[in-house]
Write a protein that binds this DNA or RNA. Structure first.
Lengths: 333, 333
DNA sequence: GTGAAAGCGCTAACAC
DNA sequence: GTGTTAGCGCTTTCAC
């Protein structure tokens, strides 16, 4: 036989007041209630170990203190986990909790997930994409405060929190320039990936700003995995005037560079400085450690909750908030 | 002005029955209700687009259709994400949803998380650890069906779902033996890590079974990162009788092997066959592709939900369920 | 300042 | 077979 949990009534009796008073005190609506009464209530709560029943609270107030978190892909690299961690930490600090749904990118599941979150009356919804992209989300989300993470709504109906990829590209290349390089190549990703395109734009801005002419011969597309980085590095380094520094669209590509450089008997950063992007788990374990730009997934998640918690209307529906990618300095530049 | 959602009453009126009947039909307790009535109810539900209010349902039935999922570390490699994906998929198929809390390994947060999950009356709790280990969990969990993933309770109060690391070690080494190797080394992790120890035990069992004497000279401890794999491989390969195959305690270590082997001018698998563990994101991108054992995180998460959903009492509190690590064949053996 | 009372939307015991 | 009724534990309006 299990001891029943104390209810607000039992607390009220213990404190010699009515349930209303207890409720008022517990919800900080007690401006009109004298300290002495408050204190009695608080004591009773403590004595009984009372904890409000969230279901009951939700039913009568329609507030669940729950935030829905939808991810398209959760299972690959730890990025989703980092956004979740960021979102959860701030939620938790505000007595809210995350209801997580992973859709696998399936539109039908996304729709069902949104319906479910509406049913459950979550206080807000965060939609987080694995890799930055435009998305079309179900209409039903318009009913709930919603914010996108690492994605933007194609119809600009919801605010978006994004990594500032352009600035990241700029910073990466700028770092190379500041280290004295003038012939700087970029191993640029596939055109379908938005992030890669923006990093390239930042790259060119840094070049422009430093008065370095952009040399198309030093940019290689089609790099996304180590293999591509390997091949492109070999190609670039056998040019008549090879680059002295390389900005890789991601750390995988940089790993391919490393291999090529080693095979060529060259040294990093002596013969070729390398900067990556993503701060992959292995970046710090490479020899030499890979200097790279970190994706601010944790911050994105945190910021999303911050926006959701902000007073209604303080974030415009079409707002786009860009968070910087910190530079992680290691030994490859 | 927002349209209110239909309630069970409105459905009842629409169908010309009482709310009870609707409830009965919707909860499959309608054995006594004739098809015709059922049909009318179903029609009314469809017409109104009725969806039950989970908070109300939870309040009166004390069933939230929610499973609590506690992780110690969610933010690093994608493992946690895979367990979550596995758990969520099966939950979802059973109309349940995951409430996720990440504790960062902090005991106080864990305690608070458990209390919160009790408050919210989750139907069950899954506690998932990042790397396999013994844990001490709050008493309060005894109130709720609880199951551990990739961890075991030091007091054996809860069932555990684990990867069968011993069998994995056995299979890895067995794979090497089957490929014709007799001098097989192991780059074994740090003793503090349970998983590494068990993989070593499996390794020795495979050796024994094949009638190969265990040679301590071929086992190197202190490998966990690429650096360790690199150093140990160099050491082993300069032995008078170097191994022809190596079982690495994880894929990071195997990556270090790769580097050493290349520097020595040897080839994989010609001069040295290598098998790793974890099926790291990069394993398939290495040249040659790394043969490795996959950690069944997805399955662990899924199995946990399966146990939670099973009729009470069908999983003994001290049960330990071990799931095999599949062998991922690539080109390094 | 505090309390009584009416729900929130649903389930389930019991009555018919 | 179906409906009536009494909660589930809390919030909130309104009266005192």
């Amino acid at each position: 036989m299990m001891a029943r949990r104390p209810t607000i009534r039992s607390v009220a009796e213990e404190a010699g007041v009515s349930p209303t008073t207890v409720s008022l005190v517990l919800n900080n609506n007690a401006s009109a209630i004298p300290e002495a009464t408050k204190e009695r209530v608080v004591q009773a709560v403590r004595k009984l170990g009372y904890r409000p029943n969230p279901s009951a609270r939700a039913l009568s107030s329609s507030q669940t203190h729950t935030i829905g978190f939808i991810t398209d892909v959760i299972a690959s690299s730890g990025y989703a986990g980092r956004s979740i961690a960021g979102a959860q930490e701030l939620s938790w600090a505000n007595d809210k909790v995350l209801l997580i749904v992973n859709t696998g990118g399936d539109a039908a599941i996304t729709r069902a997930a949104v319906d479910m979150l509406c049913d459950r009356q979550v206080d807000g919804v965060i939609y987080a994409a694995m890799s930055m992209c435009g998305v079309d989300l179900p209409e039903a989300l318009l009913q709930i405060p919603t914010i996108l993470v690492n994605a933007y709504d194609r119809q600009s109906r919801f605010p978006a929190i994004l990594a500032d990829e352009e600035l990241g590209g700029y910073t990466a290349t700028r770092t190379l320039i500041d280290a004295g390089h003038r012939r700087i190549g970029m191993l640029y990703g596939v055109p379908e990936v938005d992030a890669g395109r923006e990093r390239l734009i930042g790259h060119r801005r840094a070049l422009d700003e430093a008065g370095i002419a952009f040399d198309p011969a030093l940019v290689r597309a089609d790099c996304w995995f180590p293999e591509g980085g390997y091949r492109s590095t070999k190609a670039l380094m056998t040019l008549d005037e090879p680059p002295t520094a390389l900005f890789c669209v991601n750390d995988w590509v940089a790993m391919g560079c490393y291999e090529a450089v080693k095979e060529l008997g060259l040294s990093i950063p002596g013969d070729l400085a390398i900067i990556g992007y993503d701060n992959h788990e292995l970046a710090g374990l490479l020899r030499p450690g890979l200097t790279t730009m970190q994706l601010p997934h944790y911050d994105l998640g945190r910021k999303a909750v911050e926006c959701l918690l902000a007073p209604a209307g303080s974030v415009a529906p079409n707002a786009v908030i860009r968070l910087p990618c910190p530079l992680i300095r290691r030994q490859s530049v």
